[in-house]
Amino acid sequence: MIEVGFSMEDVARTRFALSPLWEVVASVRVLKGADEQGLHRTWTDRARPRLAAAGLDLGVLFDLVPVPSRSPWAGSVPSFLCPPPTTPLPSLAMELATLRATPPELIRTTSAVSAERMAALRANPEAELARLAEAIEAYWELVLAPYWPRILTLLESDIRYRAGRLVDGGAQRLFADLDPQVAWADGTLHLSHRSVRGPRALDGRGLLLVPSAFVWPRIFSVLGEPWQPSLRYPPRGVGALWQTRPTPVPEALAGVMGRSRALLLAELTAPASTTELSRRTGLTPGGVSQHLTALRTAGLVSAHRYGRQMLYARTHTGEAVVEAASAES
């Protein structure tokens, strides 16, 4: 059990942030076997063939993510690979800039990571970190960017909920239902850990709380120097993240943009091609293409190339529009 003591200053500095870079690393863990319960099977069933078809060399990334073991705490992810974010909602580009600028003395890890890869990083950190950043960008665009609006909606919803609990009842209420492996008592946060025990001090830096779609059913803490103390935890509702139940067309939305465009936007619960959307909606491929172009121009839909196919997905704005219109219906 790790005991994290909070001063008044630490409570005041406790805050939330999101991390696209951490989602990259955590999703690689899922692809390497961390999802024993199959929570992310819908995503992995799509991601694996896309990665295989792309033929990308992602070894520089995958070699740095330990193969998960049965122990929730074994095979720790190297801290330099995904440092805690410095702003509440950084872009992937911002986090990769931090990664590229990692001082050589911080490139350290555990024995669970490829020794050969670590030797290459230490021998030529600037070049290897640049290669790593390029691999992460390619991986992101292929298997995470199309789903990011959906993931972002889930994470932001959890932050709103937890911020409300913090306002209503302070730290005790905030941590009360955060995760079964977390408990708050007498100004101390207790984190379950199978091998590490003892007190840890925040030293007035507060705790950064980072909800993560791909971390369940575990939590990950960053408490060592020189990093910002952080806790990555699964958000509420993560079990429904990949559900693809048909979404009825909100009448309010149809009244504003027309039934066909509203139907397409509602159907994009997961990235889909023009052909697939045509089959599902009964609209002609040409009509689907025309409507998707209009939705892209309005910032409600984004496009992502997958081989010879173009996959369309709702943007964060598109997700918010559908959610708001559904709530009014």
Rank of each mutant, 00 (worst) to 15 (best):
R173D: 04
A26V: 04
G55R: 07
T293E: 12
L311A: 06
R131T: 04
W184S: 07
A12H: 02
E328D: 03
T14W: 01
E105T: 14
P285A: 09
R70H: 08
T102H: 14
V322D: 04
G318F: 11
M118H: 06
E141H: 13
M310P: 05
A54H: 10
T275I: 10
V30G: 08
R13D: 09
T98Y: 00
S69A: 13
A47I: 02
T42K: 15
D158N: 10
G255A: 01
V167E: 15
V143Q: 01
A17V: 13
L21C: 09
R160E: 12
P146Q: 04
V65G: 08
T98C: 14
Q37P: 15
P68H: 10
L241I: 08
Q181F: 00
R50K: 00
G204V: 01
A201W: 11
S19N: 07
A53I: 00
I2T: 05
F214C: 01
R46W: 15
A213S: 02
Y161T: 13
R150Q: 09
P146K: 02
E116M: 12
L81S: 10
T297P: 00
R50E: 15
Q243C: 11
A97F: 09
L155C: 07
S326H: 03
E23K: 03
M94H: 14
F62H: 13
W216I: 00
T297C: 00
R29S: 14
W43T: 06
R261V: 02
V182W: 11
G282S: 09
E36K: 12
A54I: 06
E267S: 12
P68N: 06
P146C: 03
D203V: 00
Q172V: 08
S212Q: 01
E105G: 10
I159N: 06
A272M: 12
S221Q: 11
G237W: 03
P104V: 03
G239H: 13
V182S: 01
R279D: 01
F16Q: 10
G33S: 07
L18S: 08
T14C: 05
P246H: 05
L189G: 12
M1E: 06
S302H: 04
M8Q: 08
W22P: 01
A171N: 05
L64S: 14
M118K: 02
A34S: 14
S230Y: 02
G286A: 10
R13V: 02
S27D: 01
S326N: 01
S289E: 07
M257N: 04
S76T: 15
W140R: 07
R50L: 14
K32L: 13
V301C: 06
G255M: 01
L178Y: 08
D186R: 15
H190W: 06
M257H: 02
